[in-house]
Design a binder for these strands. Structure first.
Lengths: 207, 207
DNA sequence: GTCTATAACCCGATAGAC
DNA sequence: GTCTATCGGGTTATAGAC
């Protein structure tokens, strides 16, 4: 059951890295969680960092089926899909008492001088996220100002999510995340109103 | 020179924690950087975590003199002060080839289950930052919509900075940070324009 | 207050039988 | 492919002289 063992290792590491971080997760932790022995792990992976690479690759290939599809299952509107994606992070925070947010962001800030290959995989994960949101914003077409830099707005959505997760995790309260997302929604509402002034804007008591 | 020794330890630890992170900085690293011996450190501090507490306390008490005053030295306008503060983080990124951003944010995401006293000091640091920005936004008075939740907008500024730093550090490029801040500036410009439609808005080619 | 030496432990990784 | 046993090294923290 070689393939199965390798998958159990990656799955266990994915969970542990998200819960405790990369540095605070020992190889022994992974072995115990996966129910395998040292020899098996080092048969499949040259070292601990290569387990991290496999985990980051799993996240990358899981963006569509594991993240976007569940978040967008019942949401067709492209703009609402952006906020449905943010809501999925909110749910994750709520489900863990604001302890776990975005594993990619945590690893990105935990590793200060990451191996270039690790950093590249982090970048690719962010790019996949931003690209998906940018696609939604492109799909929104003329509902947003034609000259709007949709990639920059997609990046803005990412920073809102990551910053909100950071704050909520620190405060163990969803309030910071909600405040940031509310401001983003107000901004997007104003962008839409700039194109279609007749449309009633989403309000959060900001006027 | 007791006080001097303690200060050297805290100063060295502040620098190392920012550069390598808390977990990746060993007590031996701190001893070497501070030019002291093990016995001295453990004379002043019960353990490594207590050094972190002193570092976080130093950051907290340094917000005004070390962060805000330099960033705001030649900026009087309250709204521009917000962006001057963000620009100081941009400068920090540029000065370190996008390697170091916000040390508080890095520590906040690095420690997954921090001791409550550590988490509280992280929270207090964020609160000091948000409070200062909220003060600027309050000072802006009627230039912003009267019903605007200025605390929420201040939190939004923090998430923009922290998220932008995360992205720029990962990509070793200032582009992500700049994109996020440009969107924030566009948003603030639209908020101001909503109050004073005659005023020309800051443009970033978004219309 | 500061020094040196070291205890006690955990880490990632390896060896070699099976 | 998987197992057990273990190596070599780095970790935080302590002991005890000065």
């Amino acid at each position: 059951m070689g393939k199965d063992t390798r998958e159990r290792i990656v799955f266990a590491a994915m969970r542990l890295f998200a819960e405790k971080g990369y540095g605070s997760t020992s190889v022994a932790d992974i072995l115990q969680a996966a129910g395998v022995n040292s020899g098996s792990l080092y048969y499949f992976f040259p070292g601990k960092q290569d387990v991290l690479l496999a985990v980051l690759e799993a996240y990358r290939s899981g963006i569509e089926p594991m993240l976007l599809r569940p978040a967008w299952g019942d949401v067709a509107d492209p703009v609402e899909r952006v906020f449905a994606l943010l809501a999925s992070y909110r749910n994750r925070l709520l489900a863990t008492e604001c302890q776990y947010g975005c594993p990619i962001g945590s690893i990105a800030l935990e590793l200060h001088e990451p191996d270039p290959v690790v950093r590249e995989l982090l970048r690719v994960n962010f790019e996949g996220w931003v690209g998906a949101v940018e696609g939604c914003l492109a799909e929104a077409g003329a509902r947003l100002p034609v000259g709007l830099d949709r990639r920059a707005l997609a990046i803005f959505c990412l920073t809102t999510m990551e910053g909100g997760v950071m704050l909520s995790r620190t405060e163990r309260s969803i309030a910071g995340f909600d405040s940031a997302v509310a401001m983003l929604r107000d901004y997007v509402g104003r962008l839409q109103a700039a194109v279609n002034p007749g449309h009633s804007r989403e309000r959060g008591g900001t006027c």
